[in-house]
Structures are given as structure tokens and as C-alpha cells.
Design a protein around this nucleic acid. Structure first.
Lengths: 213, 213
DNA sequence: GACTGTGAAGCCATTCACAGCT
DNA sequence: AGCTGTGAATGGCTTCACAGTC
């Protein structure tokens, strides 16, 4: 098995690869030994050629005539996508959405642990939500540096998202998931992903009325 | 002002247009009269040519030499993106994430009202969260049809997401935002958007370690 | 026969270059 | 001069076609 030919992975392929991993894990739960590009393509509604092309970016680990060995594929994908470890994160802004994410068990299930939350309101500081301690915002810098945390989650109102983004940067955070409904932009190499929950509803609404006229 | 030349809008442009709307509203709050493609491009980190191209899909409403009149641009975008109305939705699955979204004020702020929530657990039925009544799953069909609701939000565990997706379809729902961490796929004309919260963290984590090696 | 892996073609999205208006 | 609107060029992603392996 040739390993790590690792050409550059196109931006568009990253999300797909993570989804392939989900279906591969599902196949494992169901006790399958092999999974084919055809299988995955059907489940995701994409062309099987694309699935093979995506896997080819990572090297060759299929078996011609059979497909991809589930166990091997899962391990390779987890390793390549850097999910063979626990990632620690901090969350800033313990409002409605922030509290919700602190209680959301899905992050831990996929290897992301929110170590600390931060909020500007003294009323919230000192409390715990979902087992995560809430600290005052001014300790952000110190804690992030002390713990060497690299990922930040922003759940503050849109007015303060920009400011918090810069604070996180200065503290040494390298990747940010921003839930504030105004896209955040920071200079490379900081990686920002904007997740605007309403935007997804808006997109659906738009396509919906396209069909009608 | 020529209005509604309305060529087909590329898929990739839809999310951008919604974000342009956000920045246009911000400019309005700040009392600006005009906004230029350059302004928007800088804030979003994209090429101003692309901004103009995107607006051109919708017809012509810029003023040469000046830019786009904020009030006009906002109204046009809201109309074209079908956001000049209140959209009603139902939510299925009142677990951690579901409850959170019921309490999240951001949807209503952008014109999306969750009318009812549904859950399979009798313990939850009858309660209200964020002012939204929780009904038993078996009433989904009747309520959706009676109220003519077109948008559904799925926040059930991944095991039941597929099944709920089909139930929503049968009830007459036309657009779905799926928060379960396994991409959902339904036959056209149903529009599904998959929002996998952990996937965003995973993407950030992947890019993060790309830089290091 | 079944499925992977990949060069080449095709397609869509973005960027460039410039004409046109104010 | 400054900015929009758009044909043409570029670039990147997806699909096709087929060679390669089991």
C-alpha cells in the first residue's frame, strides 16, 4: 500500500472527505468489510468518479475489483484529516447559542473538547455549563497561552464578533469557527470558518420559491 | 432603473448574495448612502469584480461613478432573496441542539419563526421551549398540512435523521435544514441543506495542521 | 466482471480588461 | 476620475473514458 502521495487537496474536497469518513464509520458499525466509490457516491448524491478522485488526492488505498477496505479507509481518513487525536477549544460568548453549544454532546463525540468558555458578563462568570467553566474575558489570553489551545468558537453578538476575533488571534488561536451572523475575516495563516445559522434557512427559502416562480 | 433581468444565479453566488445583504444592512445602520463593490469586497475578502458580477445576475441597480444606493440595494436583495416576508418552520427533535435552536433569537431576527417543535418522547410533549410548543411526532403531518408550513429543521440523532427527512417530505415540507451529522439526501424538488456543526471544527483542525506539516 | 486510478475533456466560477455612464 | 456592467480569458473542479489490477 503506497501511502501519502498527498497531492494538494482542493478546498471543495475537504468537506466531502469528512463526509466520506462519516459514511465509512457507518459502514463499519454495520460490519461491512469493503465499501466502494459507488456506495459512497449514491449515499451522498455525487458521482462515484469524484469519490475516487478525492481519495486519489491522498494516495492509493483502494483494492481494484473490491473497493476500499473499511477499516483501512477509516484509519487513513482519520489520520489524514488529523482526527486521530483530541482537539481542545475555547468558546467565547455564553448567550443562547453559546450555552447550547456547551451542552451539545456532538463535539466531544467527534474529538473536540471545549476546555473553557469566556464571557464579559460577571453574572455568568464562575458558573459551569455542560461541565465547562465560564471565565472572565480578560483571562482569555493567559488561559489560551497556558493551555496551548489552537481553536476558538465565537458565539457573541455580531457587534462584538470582530473584536473577539482579534482578541483570539492575539492570544495565539489559529483556527476560528464564527457563529456570529456577519462573516469574520482575519489575516492568514489564521483560518476562519463562518457558520451563519440563519443563512442556511435563507438559502433554503430562496431555492424554495425559485421552483414556484 | 431596469429591474429583474434575473439570469440564473449560480449556486456559489447565493450565499455571497445573502452576505452582501448583511453588509448592506450594516452600512444602512451606519447611515451610509452609497456602498461600492470595493467596500463589500474588502469586508468579505473577495474580488470586487465578483461582487459586481453577482449583482449583475439580478439586473442592473448600481449607479456608475457612485456605487450602489444602500436603501435600494437592501430592498432589492431582500426581495430577490425572498426575505421580504416571514417564513414559518417546524423543528423536529428537541434534544440539546434542538432546544438550543428553539431559544436562539437569531432566526426570528431574520424573519424565520419556528411555529411548532416535535419530539418522540412523551416527557417532552406539551412543554414549551423558547415559546414554542412541543407536539408529538405523530401530529407532524396534520400540523404541517394545516398550517401550510414549508421549511423543516432536523435536530434528531443521526440514526433517525433519514426517517424524519422522509416524514417531513410526506407532510409536504419543501426545504430542510438538517443538523444531524450525517448528510441527508432527498429527491428533488425538495431542497436539503446539511449543517454539520462538528464538520466545521474538523475543517478548521485540518487546515490548522496543514500549516505545521 | 468489478472496481480503482488517472490523463484528458468539459464545465462552471472567478478574474481580467475595457467599454460606458455620471 | 470613479465606479458599474460585461465579453473574453483564465483557472479550478468535476466528469468522461479508459488503462490497470484483482
Amino acid at each position: 500500500m503506497k501511502f501519502f502521495t498527498m497531492k494538494r487537496i482542493p478546498k471543495a474536497a475537504v468537506a466531502r472527505l469528512l463526509n466520506y469518513l462519516r459514511f465509512t464509520e457507518e459502514a463499519e458499525r454495520e460490519g461491512e468489510e469493503f465499501i466502494t466509490a459507488q456506495d459512497i457516491g449514491e449515499k451522498m448524491g455525487i458521482n462515484p468518479h469524484l469519490v475516487r478522485r478525492d481519495f486519489a488526492y491522498l494516495g492509493q488505498f483502494g483494492e481494484r475489483g473490491k473497493g476500499y477496505r473499511v477499516k483501512n479507509l477509516k484509519d487513513s481518513l482519520r489520520k489524514i484529516m488529523k482526527l486521530d487525536r483530541i482537539w481542545e477549544a475555547v468558546l467565547v460568548g455564553v448567550g443562547n447559542l453559546g450555552s447550547a453549544l456547551l451542552r451539545y454532546p456532538g463535539f466531544l463525540e467527534r474529538g473536540f473538547r471545549i476546555r473553557y468558555a469566556f464571557d464579559i458578563s460577571p453574572a455568568k462568570v464562575g458558573k459551569k455549563i455542560g461541565g465547562v467553566e465560564i471565565l472572565p474575558l480578560k483571562e482569555l489570553d493567559r488561559v489560551v497561552q497556558r493551555e496551548g489551545i489552537k481553536i476558538g468558537i465565537i458565539t457573541v453578538p455580531k457587534e462584538s464578533a470582530g473584536e473577539i476575533g482579534e482578541k483570539l488571534c492575539k492570544a495565539g488561536i489559529q483556527g476560528i469557527v464564527n457563529f456570529a451572523p456577519l462573516p469574520l475575516r482575519l489575516p492568514p495563516p489564521i483560518k476562519v470558518i463562518n457558520v451563519d445559522l440563519s443563512l442556511n434557512l435563507e438559502t433554503v427559502a430562496f431555492y424554495l420559491s425559485q421552483n414556484v416562480g
